[in-house]
Simulated assay, not measured.
Amino acid sequence: MRVQLVCAAVLTAVLLTPAAPAHPATTGTHSVVTWGASADRVGDGVPDRAYRLVVRTSAGGSDLRVRLSNAFGDRPLTLDSVWAGTQDTGALLVSGSNRRLTFDGARSVTVPAGQTLFSDALPGKWPAGANLVVSLHSRDAAGPATGHGMAMQTSYTTQGDHTAEESADNWTDRTGSWFYLDAVTVRTAARTGAVAALGDSITDGWQSSGDLNRRWPDYLARRLQRAGSDIQGVANEGISGNKILADGAGQSALNRFDRDVLSLPGVRTVFLFEGVNDLKADTGVTADDLIAGYRQVIARAHAAGKCVAGATIAPFKGWSEWNPAAEAVRQAVNEFVRTGGEFDAVTDFDRILRSPYDRERILPVFDGGDHLHPNDKGMQAMADAVDLTALTCPYPPT
């Protein structure tokens, strides 16, 4: 779903202060996630397939590392060639930018089933807001493949190992998914942190414009960059159809929280915006059920030294699974988010997105067309509604 600001008066975020102030280190450097995408199963692995994956950085820094994921694999995954460069256009790379990544000094790496692992650091500076291209190849991939299904970004595939090539000549097939890659980090100032947006299809960017980075976390990343905030990294950990409480479209938020959020370097704040898939379509989930799920996220994040920003559930009347019972749950949950005092910060996406003429519906100018997902304007309005100071968590990074 997406959001755009109508005027300054509508864009309020409610701030609550954390209980245990402590300032992060201000000297030295550390690793911070600059891009992330939640892992899920994406079909089966294809032998001798190569992928040229286009991702957008948020925080700039040095010593880039990529995290490869075989989280949903049922056997070891061997990647025999992994390169990183900068996109020129399409599958074409900027001349001289493509460089080989290594793993404990080796060119090939085997990721055990159910695991993730990082590459060695790639020396050099990497800018914020750039299209990084990770090219990887597996000679014998098979069984369940791990990746992110709805990338809202065109990447490229080919048969055979063409990962070292900067030319686009052999990269003629396209894909709208990311494969075997779930995070990228850079090394930057110790005062710099990241926010991880834990969400569903609205966070994942459905109904935003593809290949233009207009998901609401993308707009947020650009705001943070312009403001010179200490929060520079933004990891989009949304999965379309995802729920807080139950597996289905990906593992539930509770079940994937450690891997998709807490394991990411430099995350200082968790931004929780989920719940609509739990309550719609007569699932039987009550407000108390959903609030209990929120409390688990808050408790686990706080135990790990992170702050938690919460967001109200956006209106969705007109969507096929809306009914008065689901609306009643939404209203009760939103009241808890606004007034419960358990989140460290609150952004009222419901208030920003809803129509003044029918508060159960999304404002038409923000509606992507299905009455649930915002368009580009809606996405921007959501990002504009976030109080940037609320994301600078006082807990020290772990």
Rank of each mutant, 00 (worst) to 15 (best):
K317L: 03
T12F: 11
R139W: 02
L264H: 02
D230M: 06
G238R: 01
T110M: 06
A311W: 02
G45S: 04
R222C: 08
D173F: 12
R214I: 00
E335K: 13
A281E: 08
M150A: 13
P265S: 09
R359I: 08
L132K: 07
D376H: 01
T102N: 06
T12Y: 12
I298A: 03
V42G: 02
L391F: 05
Q380E: 15
G36Y: 00
G149Y: 04
Q251E: 10
A145E: 13
G250A: 05
A292P: 04
D278M: 08
G60H: 12
S58Q: 04
S155L: 06
P127R: 14
L77C: 07
S95M: 06
P374W: 13
S81E: 13
V32H: 00
S69Q: 06
S138E: 00
T283N: 09
L93Q: 01
I244W: 01
R191G: 07
C307D: 06
D204E: 15
D44S: 15
P123N: 09
A142W: 01
V133C: 04
F336G: 00
A37Q: 11
E237H: 10
P112F: 08
D247A: 12
S177K: 13
A20F: 15
A59G: 08
A303C: 08
W178L: 15
T188E: 07
V10Q: 14
P217D: 07
A196G: 10
S320M: 09
M152I: 07
A20K: 15
P76Y: 12
S138I: 03
P315V: 04
A249K: 08
L122Y: 08
T17I: 08
L388S: 08
S320L: 09
A141H: 01
L262M: 08
D104Y: 02
N98S: 14
S229G: 07
T283H: 14
F273R: 01
W126Y: 15
A20E: 11
A381P: 01
A121R: 09
R67T: 05
R99G: 02
G341M: 10
D173W: 10
D384M: 10
D173Q: 14
G143N: 10
D140H: 14
H30T: 08
T339F: 08
G129C: 05
G28C: 12
A50G: 14
G378S: 09
H302K: 06
V42A: 11
H137R: 03
A113E: 11
V261Y: 01
L181H: 10
S108F: 04
L79G: 01
V261H: 03
L262I: 11
Q380I: 11
N242C: 09
D289I: 02
F179E: 04
A189M: 05
K243H: 09
L15I: 07
P397W: 05
T392Q: 15
F343V: 00
Y219E: 09
R223M: 09
L5Q: 14
